[in-house]
Computed example of a mutant assay.
Amino acid sequence: MLQFSLNLSLLFTEKPLIERFEAARSAGFDAVEIQFPYSLSIEQIKQQLAQHRLKLVLFNIDADTLLQGGEGLAAIPEKKAQFRQAVEQTLRYAEALQPKAINILPGCCFDATRKADYVATFKENLLYATERFSHLGITTVFEAVNTQDMPGFLIASGQAMVDILAQLNHSGLAMQYDIYHMQKMGEDCAGFLAQHLDKIGHIQFADCPGRGEPGSGQVDFEHLFGLIERSAYRGWIGAEYRPTNDTLQSLQRWQHFR
């Protein structure tokens, strides 16, 4: 049986973040994820999770300027100290909230001549964070993002993630596979999932090309979700899309997959 979580950073955005927990439970879900939860205190989040009987299954390490058009944090050689401070912040939240996974966004490199240095820094930081989180029983994941939405993104394919996993070879590290981003890059998502689900710690989805809910674009979710359900994958599948109308209407479009 598939396990779906709702991403509260993109869904129910007509409400303040602290009210979206209740909205997710009222919509019939028992798990949520948040891109960056740090605008809420640990105690606020714990209270909401307890009150509404929810699991928080995933959130991200701070990515600095990434969502504002900058390069981010995890791969910039000059920001290693800042990245480690971000890891400590995330550790405080992770120890209290016990997510299944913590995601690290590689970020962008706008100077192609520095890409090798950025990749090396990212791998060093990724291994550092994985070591810090693994003793809590939390999987560290990292994500490839399409370069149409984010030009210069450092990791932009499933194969690039597979290569990094092989190079770092840490049992606490896995991929976060985002169907929308990889479909946008022209990847054969079904083929990749069929081959590499054992290396994936978390899945996210949105339709493509518009990043709306399933049924708003061209992705064959019936095939992809069926493939996942028949596999040995037992992780969470995060709804990380931008509703084409309001969130509740968007959820109705893919209720039959649950």
Rank of each mutant, 00 (worst) to 15 (best):
Q176I: 07
C189F: 05
E187W: 07
E131R: 13
I138S: 04
A120V: 07
A75D: 02
C108L: 01
T140S: 09
F205I: 05
D111K: 08
K199R: 05
T113V: 13
G172A: 14
D207S: 06
G152A: 02
K199D: 02
Q204L: 00
A156L: 06
A160D: 08
Q68H: 13
V87M: 07
F205R: 03
D178H: 14
P151C: 13
C208T: 14
L91W: 03
D178W: 10
Q89L: 06
G186N: 12
T90I: 00
M182T: 09
Q159C: 10
L127Y: 08
L165Q: 10
Q167P: 05
A112W: 11
H181K: 08
T130K: 11
F83D: 01
E78K: 12
Y128S: 12
M175Q: 14
V162K: 09
Q148S: 10
A75S: 06
F83S: 01
V87S: 02
H135P: 09
G158T: 05
Q85R: 03
I102Q: 01
E78L: 09
D188S: 15
A166E: 07
I179H: 02
L73R: 07
M182L: 15
V87P: 00
I155E: 08
V141I: 13
D207W: 02
K80T: 11
V87T: 06
F142C: 08
T147S: 04
F83Q: 02
L126W: 06
A94V: 15
Y180K: 02
F110S: 14
V119M: 09
A120M: 04
L127S: 12
H196P: 00
S134A: 15
A74T: 02
A144R: 09
